[in-house]
Amino acid sequence: MITTALYKQFSREMLGAVRQPGDALAPVVFYLIVGMLFPLALGSDPRLLAQIGPGAIWIAALLAVLLSLHKLFRSDLDNGYLDQLLLMPCPLFLLIGARLLAHWLQTGLPMLLVTPLLAESFGLDYALLPVLLSALALGTPVLLLLGAINEALTLTSRGGALLALLVLPLYVPTLVFGSGAVYAVYFGENPAGHLSLLAALALITLLFAPWAVATALRISID
């Protein structure tokens, strides 16, 4: 019964993305555009670009995830679907988990797929690419989950910039460990420490965030 509900929830989200591909791909395009802004702002010196590249890519990823958050619950809040979800005889955090997984597959995964393009445009060494991709694979779920908590909290509040104010300070550790892993390879060191910390962060967030999102939704929609 629960697995059916979870599967339905997941497939509904995926189907929406298939039917409205432009909607789902907007954050990915945003990711590429922000990446493009850095060379335009800082000049096209290849050495400089290779050095700022990992950090710039991480900031672009962070902003793209932030931008994608509004798609999580808003439209379902407006059409009343979210109220029905809260009434379902199934643990809310599991439903949220299914929904977040679908959301990550629509935004996080495509971002990973286009990252080599961005890395190439910054002229990053190919040796950095595996670490960059694994760091992003571990980091983007954390960004998404932390963002989802705050998106759920601010769902029925006033103020547009509030979400960014709440979320960005919480993104600091992910950014530090994520870009740190890539820079470790850049400076010829072992990135294992950074990646382990990032993985620990991902596990903690995976454990607690769905519950926190569910609680936040119940607070916002009473």
């Binding site: 909290l153 601010t154 029925t156 509040s157 006033r158 103020g159 509030l162 104010l165 709440l166 960005l168 300070p169 919480l170």
Partner: peptide, 13 residues
């Protein structure tokens, strides 16, 4: 920033 976030959230609801 964390403090300002909680104060702002309180003010926004």
């Amino acid at each position: 920033f964390l403090y300002l976030g909680t104060i702002a959230l309180r003010g926004a609801i």
